[in-house]
């Protein structure tokens, strides 16, 4: 991990709610992989105090691409103070053919960097957008990605749910950050209803807790697993939901 600076090179609106920002970054950050993130600090002041966690959505021509809401204002040439790389890459199976990504009441941004990587490796991708995530405009995503929309009433439900859960070799789910543990508990309960078994390394929860340090120093992102404890900032963000103690 290093503390470095990044410079905004380009900004482009990609859909109704989001803009993509192209960042020139330190070489060390070009090793970033799907699932990993950076902690960004935009000001020299102490407000806001905590760094924002940014999950890149792509790595193109030596530039890191991040996606931020249009409501936030950025400028070309703006310097961002960056701490990273945070966390571990998603652990994909070697024999992977089909992946299901699920954004449940949260934008799917932490999952998006997987898409170009998976498509390049000839893995088919379906993304399910549920609850508030249904308002996420997917027109900028590659056409090979199949999009399933749930209703916007906060249920973990979409059409062909049984089929897609059976078809997927691995599932990565991100949920609204208001009550991650309870939501993940509901997710695994629902998946257990729909599949006769949920094997290890099949269903992953992508945690988005606030990370004060991102380095394993403050221990505020520690979770309990059936093997002991784990730090989201060092060992996450994705954890096998069958191994996390959620209640």
């Amino acid at each position: 991990m290093k503390e470095t600076q990044a410079v905004i090179e380009r900004i482009k609106q990609v859909n109704l709610g989001y803009q993509r920002i192209e960042l020139s970054v330190d070489e060390s950050l070009l090793q970033i992989k799907p699932g990993q993130s950076i902690l960004a600090r935009l000001t020299e002041t102490w407000d806001p105090y905590l760094r924002q966690q940014w999950f890149p959505v792509n790595l193109l021509n030596g530039k890191l691409i991040v996606e931020r809401p249009l409501s936030e204002t950025y400028e070309i040439g703006q310097v961002i103070h960056v701490l990273g790389i945070i966390g571990q890459p998603f652990r994909f199976r070697k024999t992977l053919r089909n992946v299901l990504l699920v954004a449940y009441d949260t934008p799917p941004i932490p999952l998006l960097m997987t898409i170009p990587w998976l498509l390049a490796n000839k893995v088919s991708v379906t993304i399910a957008l549920l609850g508030v995530a249904t308002s996420y405009d997917t027109q900028h995503l590659p056409p090979e990605v199949e999009v399933e929309l749930g209703n916007n009433e906060g249920e973990f439900l979409w059409q062909n749910q049984v089929m897609t859960l059976g078809w997927a070799d691995q599932v990565f789910v991100t949920v609204g950050p208001d009550n991650e543990f309870s939501r993940f508990a509901n997710v695994i309960e629902r998946v257990r209803e729909l599949r006769h078994d949920v094997p290890r390394h099949y269903l992953f929860g992508v945690f988005q807790q606030l990370l004060p340090c991102g380095a394993g120093a403050c221990h505020s992102c520690m979770i309990r697993t059936d093997e002991g404890t784990a730090l989201i900032c060092l060992e996450g963000p994705a954890f096998d939901l069958t191994q996390v103690i959620l209640r």
């Binding site: 407000d47 105090y49 905590l50 807790q209 004060p212 505020s220 520690m222 002991g228 404890t229």
Partner: peptide, 25 residues
Amino acid sequence: WHPATGTKVVPLDSGVLVHTGLPNP
């Protein structure tokens, strides 16, 4: 000691409130 459950970090104006439960092995 196990980690605390529920919210562990609350951002404040120019600060942060942290409740970890002092997890340690």
